[in-house]
Design a binder for these strands. Structure first.
Length: 159
DNA sequence: AACGTACACTTAT
DNA sequence: ATAAGTGTACGTT
């Protein structure tokens, strides 16, 4: 079975995906789309629905190299939460700068939620456009808040 | 607020 | 083999 490709919309961008079954080989943000479908969980995520993307797999997650350990650690960050480069480095037993490097080369953003990794003092970086990172984070925050309201949790309980 | 340096890993030469 | 480059962190000034 061949690797298929497709895209879906996220805000002003298209998310292009190369995948087969539950394995995602590449994700990239682009200004234009390509015909074809994307994995269901990814489509739901882009539609603003809180989605557990850990059901998807990626080759970059496997192995004992530093990047693989970092990517696995990043995947543990839950929807709507963030962690710093330093925190990830500690879990993966490496250095914050290596985490930054690994994020910059992340072949499958969203599947490996590099947008949830922020600097100790600010937001950190994101390619191709920092605005995507901001939009992803605010989208997740809003979605979580809505979930809490829908389930009847009062504001005082969440503070 | 700006600057320097340690840190560890990858990629390029 | 070795140097350069990182989406950092932290201390000092």
């Amino acid at each position: 079975m061949a690797v298929t490709s497709g895209s879906c919309r996220f805000g002003l961008w298209y998310v292009r995906v190369e995948w087969r079954g539950d394995t995602v080989y590449r994700v990239q943000f682009a200004a234009t789309g390509t015909p074809g479908d994307v994995p269901g969980p990814l489509r739901q995520f882009c539609a603003g629905r809180p989605t557990d993307l850990t059901v998807l797999d990626a080759p970059a997650l496997h192995g004992d190299e530093a990047y693989a350990r970092i990517y696995r650690a990043v995947r543990q960050i839950p929807y709507g939460k963030t962690a710093t480069y330093g925190e990830i480095a500690e879990i993966a037993r490496t250095h914050p700068r290596v985490v930054g490097q690994a994020m910059a080369r992340n072949p499958v953003p969203l599947v490996i939620p590099c947008h949830r990794v922020i600097a100790a003092d600010g937001i950190g970086g994101f390619s191709p456009d920092i605005a995507i990172k901001e939009e992803l984070l605010t989208m997740e925050k809003k979605a979580v808040r809505k979930l809490q309201l829908d389930s009847g949790i009062t504001q005082s309980e969440t503070q």
